[in-house]
Design a protein around this nucleic acid. Structure first.
Length: 869
RNA sequence: GGGAGCAUAGCUCAGUUGGUUCAGAGCAUCUCGUUUACACCGAGAGGGUCCGCGGUUCGAGCCCGUGUGCUCCCA
């Protein structure tokens, strides 16, 4: 097969992906081989591929492809998450564009639109993963609202309720005014915001015209104030405790109370207490038996509690209230202030604390075994630092608010009778059966849906129908899964809860290793986000550079445990690597017509082959151990260096036949074999080009994708060292040529002075070729009018036609001499130190003595060279 | 406010229980070079008081203390 001038990724990628699918390589069925199971973190059904997915799925594909080539039975399950809030928001927006208000639709009508939307636009992201080469088992594509999955979620709710681990309660929750739903704590993102601190004075209900001043960043909440609180030890306010004050503008009379919760140094030391709209104030209110006055409607507008602002949004009121307070004479001052404000993860609306009746999971009961599994390393986190983060959260775990005021999702299986009694069971019929007293009564189902994560925490179980069809062959074979690859941001949302669900419902951990990827940032270190517009178009990049180059670029820049600073130049590096691979194959193929089977392999070529075999084995071992430790980026770098430097720059040059000369069949075949091993090693990282070249090299019986790794050959250390010496000599001599301005084309005569000539004789042809020497000779004495180079204990004389710059040669030698002498002095200092000799281990002392002997020998060599100048 | 982590070449990072030849790699930089795989290239080079200070030790990039700066998580 003839290779084109350049590698063209586009066609090659489509061709091989289709081929792999046709062959069914990615499909897994339980068998006798060990399973290697990975479940994809299900992207939102509304999602499109971004850099985070790209990193995450490339890593998973590397692990899965490698497992496949190691003879395991890998199963990588794709799927999507219904993403309740995000999807419902998209559907509502789509309806609005068509002029349909959600409020004008019944629940069923709305859901019909939602499903229609999901079928049409959902799962685009899965198609995009194919572009990247992901070896997912498409026959297993799952969705968190598939019928079985849906039933399982409901079953789990009922079960936890029956066990007393789910309850309904009125609590302070995070309210998303845009989506008009409750949010869990994890769905609130705290950001630093520039605000204003309003100092507002409240008239005291005492004779005279006295005031008490409070400081707040949320002045619109004053309408919900039901007390003012000061510290009991605060001398400024002691006399006011037990008295009353009036809320500005509405003149409602509220008590002044004392509590040591107050920080005297903060603000004015007096706190307005608004139990309905702040969690701390709520707790304070409970403690002191204060009234709770709500001032907000569901959509964040003010209600009748603020008569002059009814229907206006709270943020808008915050802006205009200053003037009104000022007019009323209650505004003391305004100052700039930076504070933390909670935003909705999904809608970016400012979250309002709100008192509300919601469903909760009692997390304390579930946390125990899940914490233990990680602390005991039954589940290993990579990097391990996330163990601490995990423990901290589990130790301080709060109950999980799971109800969402949405229609898209799993509807809560709770029914209410006319008196407001609650009955929990999977269906209305099941309610009647379980609670006979409900028969004949009109029951209304809870209108709310469950938090999206209440379904995703069952993902590793239910993708194998582990709950809807317990103990089936697949769940028994594939569960627990092997490795979970995910972003650290969802350690609490998802990872922790999957562990809980696994322990609760399977009695077993859901995965053995968790690999946390870094966060994808731009060149300046800013997180990639839609609002910053710094996310590149991934499909465009794949078109431009090829999928392999994108995978390479992203992996080479992702040090284990660190964030990824995305820079397009690494994709360029990936593309250049593609070219390098392509050209090396072209070179090999060029030699094919010149194969000759005659005679013996020349000794320098034999050396080159032995050396590369040793280098290859050593690197395979190294890569193996790196991958075991999930050091993927380093493993890729190592393979890159092996291919580019050791194979292309050294090995191929060493065995390269002269102009139009034949190549020995053994050398040719061995070189092809080496190259195929390199492609195999690289395949998990860059699957397309490696498969293409694997087939381009020669007729293959097997696709690379499923070709199992062979046992690694034993490393011949002696040959490895000999190769290292050869490389060192070549570089040193080339440097000497460069420094003496000998033109590359000009050949030299090389004389070697060494105690070990045989070491050089086997490699002298390579040496001659690589430093452009027309002759190599061995000598016992110095060679006149030559460039002298000292390396270790050996000396090399380069004889060239042109005049020699003795002065600079001498300068270099003197510099080296000084260097060596300084080194000798430091070694001597150590050896003459009695304490060192007494305390250091014998092998360390032996090393120091060898250092000394070597340094002395080198100094002698240099001095001799100097004497000859 | 609580917790976790980081600080090594211009950039991004390695550096295994403190001790192999004066700290390594990739990228970037500089010099030379179009020799028939590759300029998406080759050859070579330069570049670091390992954040500051103090301590332990015969010996510290690595251990301890402290200061400074940065990042993330939680409240």
């Amino acid at each position: 097969m003839e290779l084109s001038k350049n590698y063209l990724p586009g066609e090659v990628e489509t061709k091989w992906y289709n081929h792999w699918i046709e062959k069914g390589y990615f499909h897994s069925e339980p068998d006798n081989k060990p399973a290697y199971t990975v479940v994809i973190p299900p992207p939102n059904v509304t999602g499109v591929l971004h850099m985070g997915h790209c990193l995450n799925n490339t890593i998973q594909d590397i692990l899965v492809r490698r497992a496949r080539m190691q003879g395991m039975n890998p199963c990588w399950v794709p799927g999507t998450d219904h993403a309740s809030i995000a999807t419902e928001a998209k559907v509502v927006a789509m309806l609005r564009e068509r002029g349909i208000a959600k409020s004008s639709l019944s629940r069923d009508e709305f859901l019909e639109y939602a499903w229609e939307w999901k079928e049409k636009y959902g799962g685009i992201i899965l198609q995009q993963l194919k572009k990247m080469g992901c070896s997912l088992d498409w026959d297993r594509t799952s969705f968190t609202m598939d019928p079985d999955y849906y039933e399982t979620v409901i079953k789990v709710f009922v079960d936890l309720y029956n066990k007393g681990k789910i309850y309904r309660g009125k609590r302070m929750i995070n309210w998303d005014v845009k989506a008009k739903t409750a949010l869990s704590d994890e769905e609130v993102i705290h950001k630093e915001v520039n605000s204003k601190m309003y100092h507002i004075k409240y008239k005291l209900d005492v004779p005279g015209n006295d005031y008490i001043t409070i400081a707040t960043v949320r002045p619109e909440t004053i309408f919900g104030d039901t007390a003012i609180c000061v510290h009991p030890k605060d001398d400024r306010y002691k006399h006011l405790v037990g008295k009353h004050a009036f809320v500005p503008m509405i003149n409602r009379r509220i008590p002044i109370i004392a509590d040591d919760y107050i920080e005297m140094e903060f603000g004015t030391g007096a706190l307005k207490v608004t139990p309905a709209h702040d969690i701390n104030d709520f707790n304070l209110g409970q403690k002191h038996g204060l009234e709770v006055i709500e001032t907000l409607n569901e959509d964040g507008t003010m209600n009748e509690a603020a008569p002059m602002y009814v229907g206006k949004d709270r943020i808008e009121v915050r802006k205009i209230i200053a003037a009104d307070l000022e007019a009323a004479g209650n505004l003391v001052k305004l100052e700039d202030y930076v504070n933390q404000v909670g935003f909705s993860e999904r809608t970016d609306a400012i979250v309002e604390p709100r008192l509300s009746l919601q469903w909760w999971v009692d997390m304390k009961q579930l946390a125990g075994p899940a914490l233990e599994a990680v602390m005991s390393d039954e589940i290993q986190f990579h990097p391990a630092k996330f163990k601490n983060v995990y423990r901290h959260w589990m130790d301080n775990i709060k109950d999980w608010c799971i109800s969402r005021q949405l229609w898209w999702g799993h509807r809560i299986p709770a029914w209410y009778d006319a008196d407001g009694n609650v009955y929990v069971a999977a269906t209305a019929a099941a309610v009647n059966e379980k609670y006979p007293e409900t028969k004949g009564k009109t029951l209304t189902q809870d209108a709310d849906c469950l938090d999206t994560w209440f379904s995703s925490w069952l993902w590793p179980i239910e993708v194998f129908k582990g709950m809807s069809n317990p103990n089936n062959a697949e769940i028994n074979y594939y569960y627990p899964t092997s490795t979970l690859v995910t972003a650290p941001e969802i350690i609490f949302f998802w990872v922790a809860r999957m562990i809980m669900a696994g322990e609760e419902y399977m009695g077993k951990i859901p995965f053995k290793d968790v690999y946390f990827t870094g966060i994808v940032r731009d060149k300046q270190g800013r997180k990639m986000s839609k609002s910053l517009g710094n996310s590149p178009d991934l499909l465009g990049l794949i078109d431009q550079y090829g999928a392999d180059a994108v995978r390479f670029g992203i992996m080479i820049a992702s040090p284990a445990g660190n964030d990824l600073l995305f820079d397009e130049s690494t994709l360029e590096q990936g593309r250049n690597f593609n070219s390098k691979l392509w050209n090396a194959a072209k070179l090999l193929k060029m030699w094919e017509p010149r194969i000759s089977g005659e005679g013996k392999v020349e000794q320098d070529a034999a050396f080159a082959m032995d050396w590369f075999q040793a280098k290859l084995s050593a690197t395979q071992i190294e890569v193996d151990s790196m991958l075991k430790e999930f050091r993927l980026s380093e493993a890729l770098k190592t393979i890159y260096g092996l291919i580019w430097d050791d194979y292309c720059s050294w090995y191929l040059e060493w065995i390269k036949p002269g102009f139009e000369q034949p190549i020995h069949a053994d050398v040719y075949n061995k070189s092809i074999e080496f190259y195929d091993s390199l492609l195999q090693l690289l395949h998990p990282f860059m699957p397309f080009i490696t498969e293409e070249l694997h087939h381009a090299l020669k007729t293959q019986t097997q696709d690379l994708c499923v070709k199992e790794y062979e046992t690694i050959e034993k490393v011949d250390e002696a040959v490895l060292n000999a190769g290292a010496l050869l490389k060192n000599v070549i570089s040193t001599l080339r440097d000497a040529r460069n420094k003496n301005q000998i033109k590359p084309k000009e050949s030299i005569d090389l004389h070697i002075q060494s105690e070990n000539n045989t070491a050089y004789q086997t490699i002298q042809n390579i040496l001659a070729k690589q430093v452009n020497a027309k002759s190599v000779a061995y000598t016992n004495t110095s060679v006149g009018s030559s460039i002298v180079v000292a390396l270790e204990k050996d000396k090399f004389y380069l004889v060239a036609d042109q005049a020699i710059d003795t002065a600079s040669l001498k300068e270099n030698l003197l510099k080296d001499l000084e260097h060596q002498k300084g080194f000798l002095a430091s070694v001597d200092k150590k050896l003459n130190n009695e304490k060192f000799v007494q305390n250091a281990k014998p092998e360390i002392i032996a090393i120091e003595q060898k250092k000394k002997a070597d340094a002395l020998a080198r100094i002698q060599t240099i001095e001799e060279s100097l004497a000859q100048l």
